Computed example of a mutant assay.
Amino acid sequence: MQPETLAVERFEAAGQAPCEVGESPVWREPEQALYWVDIPARTIARLDAGTAKRTEWRLPEKVACITFDRHGTVLAGCETGLFAVTLSTALEASVRKLAAPVFPLPNMRFNDGRCDRQGRFWAGTMVQDMAAANPSGSLFRYDADGTLSAPIVDGLIVQNGLAWSPHGTTMYLSDSHPARRLVWAFDYDVETGEPRNRRIFADLNQFAGRPDGAAVDTDGCYWTCANDAGLLLRFTPDGRLDRSIALPVTKPSMCTFGGRELDTLFVTSIRPANGANEHDGHLLAVRPGVRGAPESNYAGVL
């Protein structure tokens, strides 16, 4: 499929330094602002869409994924567990550990995370040395009552791609390691938060790139960042690739819908260690002509 060449903007004020590993964009509709993280820099960033003012908070350890509760407190997946993070106007972040799995190996951390439509927070773990290709990662659920589940999906190398269909009855999960490059779909019980009937939804070994972070539009189509290919790929609910959008970065990492009409896809990116271009590591915005399904906040109170 020939990629579309839509207008892609840098959604940042001029002169901002690139992220090393930009991830987990979250649109906050009440604030008209976008939040995201830089994993190795241990930072949460915020950009006001109206003023282009950027704010950053530094955490004590690597932060890979974030969501918010109804009061605006951050729920963050980090190196040693899940944390409640309060972001102050004084650019200070106070953190409190909420829960942690028993990691089977040293040098692991949380990776991709997102809430289901009912406000349960899901996040997966990975061995930080990707070259080891170690399938010791697992997927966990953090319920509104503050309970962390046992591993629900295990055997993951680089967990990624969490998303839910608009009505929440299908859950998506990917493994973005070069040895996997798969997206799975599950039937999802919205009452119990249990995924069942795991099957391959999209095999990116047949396409360019690796399936990284993802989002779902109101048509129920699944958008995934094709890392290493510089593309956004859209798959219909039956797993058919129907759109491919070219991006000016090599390693797009995660996307989310935002803007006043939820018609903008915000895309974070990773800056390669070698051969990076001027856009790698920066935040992008593209309008693909469809609207996104709103993302849920965490249903509990942190």
Rank of each mutant, 00 (worst) to 15 (best):
Q2H: 06
E4I: 08
L6F: 06
L6N: 03
V8Q: 11
E9M: 06
R10I: 14
A14T: 01
G15C: 01
V21I: 08
G22C: 13
E23Q: 10
E23Y: 06
S24Q: 01
E29C: 05
P30A: 14
A33Y: 07
L34S: 07
V37D: 05
P40Y: 05
P40V: 04
R42T: 12
L47W: 08
D48W: 06
D48S: 12
A49S: 04
K53T: 13
R58H: 09
L59A: 04
K62N: 13
V63D: 01
A64P: 05
R70K: 11
H71N: 15
G77R: 10
C78L: 00
E79Q: 12
G81A: 00
G81N: 05
L82Y: 03
L82F: 12
A84H: 04
A84T: 00
V85K: 05
A90G: 06
R96Y: 04
R96C: 11
K97W: 15
A100S: 10
P101V: 01
V102Q: 09
P104N: 00
P106N: 02
R109C: 03
F110K: 03
G113E: 13
C115R: 01
Q118H: 10
F121V: 04
W122T: 03
M126H: 03
V127C: 02
M130G: 15
A131Y: 13
A133Y: 11
P135F: 14
S136I: 09
F140D: 10
F140T: 01
G146D: 07
G146P: 05
I157T: 02
G161V: 11
G161M: 11
W164V: 06
W164Q: 09
P166H: 08
G168T: 11
L173T: 10
S174W: 02
S174L: 05
H177M: 02
R180E: 07
R181N: 08
W184P: 10
W184D: 10
D187H: 14
D187I: 01
E191C: 13
G193E: 04
R198L: 14
A202P: 10
D203Q: 01
Q206E: 09
F207E: 11
G209V: 01
G209Y: 01
R210P: 14
V216H: 00
D217G: 02
D219N: 07
C221E: 11
C225N: 07
A229Y: 08
F235Q: 04
D238K: 14
G239L: 07
G239E: 03
G239S: 09
D242L: 11
R243P: 12
I245M: 03
P248F: 02
M254H: 13
F257P: 00
G259L: 04
S269H: 05
S269L: 03
S269R: 02
P272A: 11
A273H: 09
A276I: 04
G281F: 11
L283I: 11
A285H: 00
A285C: 02
G292H: 00
E295K: 08
S296L: 08
A299W: 15
A299I: 09
A299Y: 15
